[in-house]
Amino acid sequence: MKSLQEIRPGARARLTQVGGDRSFQRRLMELGFLPGTLVRLVRRVDVGGLVELEVRGGHISLRRSEACELRFELEG
């Protein structure tokens, strides 16, 4: 179980768990962030405290503090 902080920008990882408040979880899952889905960390912008993820071809940006509710498994 890795957090986003441990993933290198550009790398893919398999989502294992979505945490956080219910509506946050639900919205992420509806956008396709389901456990088992492959997610790519597109970029991490430390100044703004944001991350950009790619899931199912779409690009979604989250705050780093909120994205820490996601857990991953590194591929390979």
């Binding site: 979604i60 989250l62 705050r63």
Partner: peptide, 9 residues
């Protein structure tokens, strides 16, 4: 409100 922001092409 948590930010969930789509960055469209």
């Amino acid at each position: 409100v948590p930010l969930i922001l789509e960055l469209p092409p």
